[in-house]
């Protein structure tokens, strides 16, 4: 039986690699080929099948996270060297006395207040979570407190 075109391409690319490198590294080496398949409309499940046929069996979770990281690195490379750090979006006039919940409340929108029914519980799935706002807030707090103990637990 002959390989389909994508399988043959994956197989040829894999043959060029050092067999001692990790699965993720092998996967990264194939991503330019994989992106071309995805751009042509090939579903992720079919890509995984083709990779397996070419001799690279990868779990869906490994594929997903490696693809995510690869795309992130590609975006970072395309954006060039990082610009000067942006000023914080929130005022920092009194960093020693941050509002207890204001930032978190800004970052989380649409959280149901009173959970009484399974329907209320399901509405939590519709919450909007702004990770970037949380990240900024976390950095601000870290810089403000500047405690050396990074493992300190959050306190209720």
């Amino acid at each position: 039986m002959t390989d389909s075109a994508p399988v043959a391409r994956y197989r040829a690319a894999l043959a060029e690699l050092d067999p001692r490198i990790s699965i993720a590294a092998r996967l990264r080496a194939l991503f330019s080929l994989i992106e071309a398949e995805l751009a042509a409309g090939v579903p992720h499940a079919a890509v995984l099948d083709d990779l397996a046929a070419a001799g690279l069996t990868v779990q869906q979770s490994t594929y997903a996270i490696t693809l995510y990281r690869w795309r992130k690195a590609q975006r970072a490379a395309a954006a060039g060297p990082p610009a000067k750090p942006k000023p914080p979006a929130t005022p920092t006039t009194t960093p020693s006395a941050p509002s207890a919940t204001a930032g978190t409340l800004d970052a989380i929108q649409g959280r149901p207040r009173n959970i009484q029914t399974p329907g209320d519980l399901r509405k939590i799935r519709d919450m909007r979570v702004d990770l970037e706002a949380l990240r900024r807030e976390g950095l601000t707090n870290r810089n403000a407190s500047a405690t050396p103990d990074s493992t300190k637990r959050n306190e209720p």
């Binding site: 930032g103 970052a107 949380l134 976390g138 637990r153 959050n154």
Partner: peptide, 23 residues
């Protein structure tokens, strides 16, 4: 950083950075 910030602010969860499994 977002998870750590949420844990610190909300007080709803314990997020210890040492509780980590590496790739």
């Amino acid at each position: 950083p977002s998870i750590l910030a949420y844990a610190a602010k909300s007080g709803e969860v314990q997020a210890n950075p040492q509780a980590a499994v590496y790739e």
